[in-house]
Design a protein around this nucleic acid. Structure first.
Lengths: 110, 110
DNA sequence: GCGCACGCTTCACCGCCTGTTAACAGCGCT
DNA sequence: AGCGCTGTTAACAGGCGGTGAAGCGTGCGC
């Protein structure tokens, strides 16, 4: 189920990430992702199961330092959740740890 | 079974504390912890098996000095116990030493 | 050049969670 | 019994994150 960080193809339940192609598949369908969305998702997946701070996510997906008050990470987490939710309604992937950051882990809902 | 204070990953029976990730696992499941809860738990675990006074716990988890009448530590010990109890009903981790403070040590119930 | 489409950023609003304090109940010791 | 300490719950305020939309910039096709 779980995948080593730098495999070419990573599977998370119904979700499939082809790193080299920059391609995300959900139940066989292609999920259109922008560059930022993809890099953020990859950053989270690379830290599978661990909490990743906004600062680190910003470094990994944007490069540079997250400025105080910058909500970009939040907004893009939301975009990712929306797309994943729409493709795979029965699962949740990105979990919030208030005051810490986000964590990637596929779970069945409720 | 027991762990040295500053290991990255500490195991207490079914309980697993990943210090660097700020993550607590109980039987493989993630236990969501707030900042205070986590710091208090870590403070207790760092003094594994020893009695820690409220004053010291406050210093370690809150910073600063515990003011007379401040019950914050008690309230958060209770929150920790509730979460640990719910995740691992057959074990007890935090023990009260009346007039002295609290002590962390995983024990089977009864 | 112009307008459009897309992606990224920023803003504002709102709801929920957290941390704090207080109040009351219960327990243990003398 | 009386006192002090702890357990437990509730109420409150502030902060953080969720969310939708507007603002900008860039690249592309016409």
């Amino acid at each position: 189920m779980e995948a080593a960080p730098h495999d070419e193809t990573i599977r998370a339940g119904e979700l499939e990430l082809r790193r080299s192609d920059g391609l995300v598949l959900a139940g066989g369908r292609v999920l259109a992702m922008s560059v930022r969305e993809l890099r953020l998702l990859m950053a989270l997946v690379d830290r599978w199961g661990r909490i990743v701070s906004r600062e680190e996510l910003y470094r990994l997906a944007w490069g540079g330092t997250l400025r105080p008050g910058d909500r970009s990470v939040d907004v893009y987490v939301h975009k990712l959740r929306t797309k994943l939710e729409q493709a795979l309604p029965h699962a949740t992937f990105i979990h919030t740890h208030l005051g810490f950051g986000y964590r990637f882990e596929p779970l069945h809902k409720l």
